[in-house]
């Protein structure tokens, strides 16, 4: 991890409320930027010293130009600030952070994305495609409404996904996890990767067969993002209520079956 700047290059509005912000990491990161890792970003204007920073997963990273992309939906104060940042602005940042996904030796995987949780999975898909020519991925993408299943984003990564929306405006009407049993039957899967709201991940934990491993990227409110504050410690089944694991350091990618979703609310 290092302190530097996310120099804003452009904001792309994919759909109302849905943005991809591109920026150059300056100075270039000392460590590789891997799928599932994140950066911590000051989102309010320079000179304002009131807001905490915000953690965002990487959607994309170009190692040759040090350009990084973040996909976000404007939902609150932080993203409301972020969408106002303009080309040329230098946003203080800490990068890269967290423990990323692992995909060595994985060539047959299911990816389950909920809402903006699609971002790290798209980056993972992209990296896996380049490292494994035999790759077979079944990509499932769900959201509350069809408006949130931003199609341009998937096309950019060459992903064709099965989709579900809770209001039925696009794809299957219902939860994305409804589509999982059928997909599970269609192949010899080695790994499931998932990122999305906790209820989705919790449902996933109930649906997956025992022998099939699953890496999930989780979210919790965070303050420092570098492992000092213990604000994002996770309830894990094996930890007996002691919460030693920090989402920002030992996560955000965790073994799905370790997570105690009942305690996560």
């Amino acid at each position: 991890m290092q302190y530097g700047f996310f120099q804003v290059l452009r904001q792309v509005e994919l759909a109302p409320e849905h943005f991809v912000i591109w920026g150059r990491l300056t100075p270039p990161p000392h460590q590789p930027i891997l799928p599932g890792s994140f950066l911590h970003l000051k989102v309010d204007p320079p000179g304002d010293y009131r807001m905490l920073w915000r953690p965002y997963s990487f959607l994309d990273y170009q190692p040759d130009t040090h350009q990084a992309a973040i996909y976000y939906r404007v939902v609150g104060e932080g993203t409301g600030q972020l969408c106002q940042r303009r080309e040329g602005e230098l946003l203080p940042a800490i990068y890269p952070l967290g423990t990323p996904f692992t995909h060595e030796g994985v060539s047959r995987a299911i990816m389950v994305a909920g809402g903006v949780g699609v971002a790290p999975l798209l980056m993972l898909y992209d990296r896996m495609r380049h490292s494994s020519p035999q790759l077979r991925v079944e990509f499932l993408f769900g959201a509350r409404s069809g408006r949130d299943l931003v199609p341009g984003l998937l096309e950019e990564f060459g992903v064709v996904a099965r989709m579900a929306s809770e209001d039925g405006t696009l794809g299957h009407r219902g939860y994305i996890t409804d589509l999982l049993p059928e997909v599970l039957e269609q192949g010899e899967w080695q790994m499931v990767y998932a990122c999305g709201p906790n209820p989705m991940l919790s449902a996933l934990a109930d649906l997956l067969p025992e022998g099939l491993p699953c890496q999930v990227s989780l979210e919790l409110p965070m303050a420092c993002a570098i492992g000092v504050c213990n604000g994002c410690n996770l309830p894990l089944r094996s930890d007996g209520g002691r919460y030693p694991r920090r989402l920002c350091v030992e996560g955000p990618v965790m073994d799905l079956r370790e997570v105690d979703f009942a305690a996560l609310v």
Binding site: L52, L220, P221, N230, C232, G241, L264
Partner: peptide, 21 residues
């Protein structure tokens, strides 16, 4: 050793942070 409190442990407040670690 102390395990601390159950999550969520932090919430942002106007110009501040509420914590219960």
């Amino acid at each position: 050793p102390r395990g601390g409190n159950p999550p969520p442990r932090v919430a942002e407040t106007p110009a501040g942070l509420l914590n219960s670690i």
